[in-house]
């Protein structure tokens, strides 16, 4: 297979294909495309080491956020609690596998795998390890961010809460606190993640 020439000083816009020469940016600066206005690249003020800390925190929070009850509800004398994982399991037991899988994927699997891949990638880069898995990890991060919908879930929770508040006595659970923290850290991770500088750490001659 013929090896392609490449040019790391150039950048092409993802959305309009405008070709430009890369500029050196100051910390926190963002370069945007002059033609379509999308973000081209930026100099993140968050090092891979800080990213490792952020993603680890998010990964730890993910477990209580999924397993502890988001709310408990008292109605006609008995109390029901609902955690994120229970909510998905219920739909699964009703036999609606497709919807159950979609909800499970967008609210749990995608955020989990995305954070895990980014955590591993940050680990590899922070400690200068050599692994052929790095490019695969970065690809997964890219695919999964699109399907991770934590912020949508939180708004859905509020909508459900207002629907339920007239029906019964509601008590908010520990899971909700963890979930809110998880969402905040997840959005920090997303806004600080600089895919360009991560990809630059993938050695080019290592490809067969």
């Amino acid at each position: 297979m013929a090896m392609n020439k490449y040019n790391e000083t150039l950048v092409a816009c993802e959305h309009c294909d405008l070709l430009q020469v890369k500029q050196r940016l100051q910390l926190g600066q963002i370069a945007t495309c002059p033609r379509c206005g999308s973000r081209l690249y930026f100099n993140s003020s968050c090092s891979p080491m800080s990213m490792l800390a952020l993603t680890l925190t998010a990964l730890i929070l993910l477990f209580p956020a999924n397993l502890y009850p988001l709310l408990s509800m008292t109605m006609v004398g008995s109390t029901e609690t609902a955690s994120l994982s229970q909510a998905t399991l219920k739909i699964f037991h009703e036999g609606n596998y497709f919807v159950a899988f979609l909800i499970f994927f967008c609210s749990t699997i995608a955020p989990f795998l995305m954070l895990l891949s980014l955590c591993c990638a940050s680990f590899v880069i922070s400690f200068n390890l050599q692994t052929r898995w790095l490019k695969q990890l970065l690809k997964w991060v890219d695919y999964l961010t699109h399907w991770s919908m934590l912020e949508v879930y939180l708004v859905s929770f509020l909508v459900a809460l207002i629907k339920l508040v007239d029906l019964a006595d509601i008590e908010l659970g520990v899971g909700l606190v963890c979930f809110c923290l998880l969402m905040i850290i997840n959005s920090l991770v997303l806004s600080y993640y600089d895919s360009n500088s991560y990809w630059q750490r993938v050695p080019i001659d290592a490809v067969s």
Binding site: L70, L71, M73, M75, V76, S78, E80, A82, Q86, A87, T88, K90, I91, E94, V99, A100, L102, I103, C106, S107, M149, V152, Y153, V155, S156, F157, V159, A160, K163, L164, L167
Partner: peptide, 23 residues
């Protein structure tokens, strides 16, 4: 992505409102 909202709401409602024969 915000269209997923209704499905998430349903999953929460289904989990919480389960009173057997009653509701």
């Amino acid at each position: 992505r915000w269209s997923m909202l209704d499905l998430f709401v349903i999953s929460i409602m289904v989990a919480v409102i389960d009173k057997g024969q009653l509701l």
